[in-house]
Design a protein around this nucleic acid. Structure first.
Lengths: 252, 252
DNA sequence: TCTCATTTGTCCGTATGTATA
DNA sequence: ATATACATACGGACAAATGAG
């Protein structure tokens, strides 16, 4: 880790722009350039440090990429943070990636037809009860046929025509069919997880009597404008299911 | 009012490097430069497009930042993706940010002492049963004192001295005390959520008899080397609790 | 409202170092 | 070892946005 500076008067090995970046980074961290204040101009840095503008700009660009400064033409370089913000980030390719088993399961659709929203369903859809959404009902199973849990999806009226494109057994998530057919990408997903006794209607699916405890997943898929594209409701038998999340810490 | 001088139809407004970036982006998307193949060299692009090397480099840098190409000194510019990968990303400042209520709750510690790991606890800790970890027991409550749920945390032996720094009621998460005192940052968090009847011992906390249904959160905090720093176990009463996740779609 | 100096953005030219094949 | 190709670093010039007068 320590740069193996030769003890002699030899040059440090790190590139010049990188040393300047470090210099400024430390100065900012120490508060010599307070948040909200301005860094010296490119011209000033060139003169002070006796380097070319190109080199200074490379250093400043990196500070900007790190989220420490903001640059505005005509105004200058403003310090916006003393240290890079450290946040926890979870990343998944697609939403089914949230589940360990996703790759090995299929969704069997029992029905898909337009039907008016109940009072209860209307709320997560952000729509009025009675609106006619495409209601898809089915269940998720492992490839060898063992039931995982019941699935209901409600597709907004403007995308209801996707019904024609839905096969009886899906391997890709429903939202991807909507995206493909209408060219409207999902921009955001809001997921709610709760737990409790399953609706009695679902108990037979697992060969249980009474109301087994389950985990309930409600996912709302939104477009770039924040409009609900579809909502899905999934139940999983609690005793067979764990939801795993992996968050990595990074900068910015 | 002031008429712009010759805003002629042939006058492209975007910066040159950006137009070149777009040019290359489209060529890659169309497969003219296949994934795994090489882009023309900087020198070739300079000549073909009649622009300076600096401009070409700016365009290529952006393709690299977008994750479309990889550049290696001496080798060239390799195409690594036809289109930018679209992924879902969840970001939180700190782990307690995963919970809506986090800002408004406090953790009351009842005890914190070294004790040998049980068989059951040893597994999530990635340690041997019998190892002496710092066992913290308490409960989380809202600011006005209503109980949310019981909390147990197990701190790895090398950080056990943090006990001296833990106040009776914590507003910051436990891991932040470890980070501060030992200067070892948490690099990753793995969280498991499951549901089921709570251990009978916890029922009285909620004034319930029997075993109420709860959601269980097990979080393992790892350092950069992947070593477990601490593990926490939290229970929440299912009927009062929903876990909400917001994932935004972005590039790279 | 307008001018004007300041500051960053864009673009060009050139030279040398260094990893790669 | 040589040629190639990207990385680093210097130089200059003009454009465009900003903010103060």
């Amino acid at each position: 880790m320590a740069p193996r500076d030769t003890p002699g008067p030899g040059k440090p090995k790190a590139p010049l722009y990188q040393r300047i970046e470090t210099l400024l980074r430390e100065a900012i961290a120490e508060g010599r350039y307070p948040v909200g204040g301005l860094l010296p101009t490119e011209a000033e840095l060139c003169e002070t440090l006796r380097v070319s503008r190109h080199t200074v700009r490379e250093a400043l660009r990196r500070l900007k990429d790190a989220g420490l400064v903001e640059r505005r033409q005509g105004a200058g370089t403003v310090v916006i943070a003393r240290t890079p913000e450290r946040v926890f980030v979870q990343t998944v390719r697609d939403i089914s990636g949230l589940f360990q088993f996703a790759a090995d399961t299929v969704l069997h659709l029992r029905s898909a037809q337009l039907s008016p929203l109940s009072e209860e369903d209307a709320e997560p859809c952000g729509a009025a009860a009675g609106e006619r959404w495409l209601r898809c009902e089915g269940e998720r199973r492992t490839r060898d046929g063992r039931p995982i849990g019941p699935v209901t999806a409600l597709v907004a009226p403007r995308f209801a025509a996707v019904a024609a494109a839905l096969p009886e057994t899906l391997t890709a998530p429903i939202y991807s069919y909507v995206e493909k057919r209408f060219g409207v990408p999902v921009a955001e997903v809001v997921q709610e997880i709760s737990a409790g006794p399953m609706p009695a209607a679902f108990a037979p699916l697992f060969g249980k009597k009474g109301r087994p405890v389950g985990m309930r997943f409600v996912r709302r898929y939104l477009d770039a404008a924040g409009e609900v594209m579809l909502v899905s409701f999934n139940w999983h038998l609690a005793e067979r299911f764990t939801y795993l999340t992996r968050l990595k810490r990074g900068e910015a």
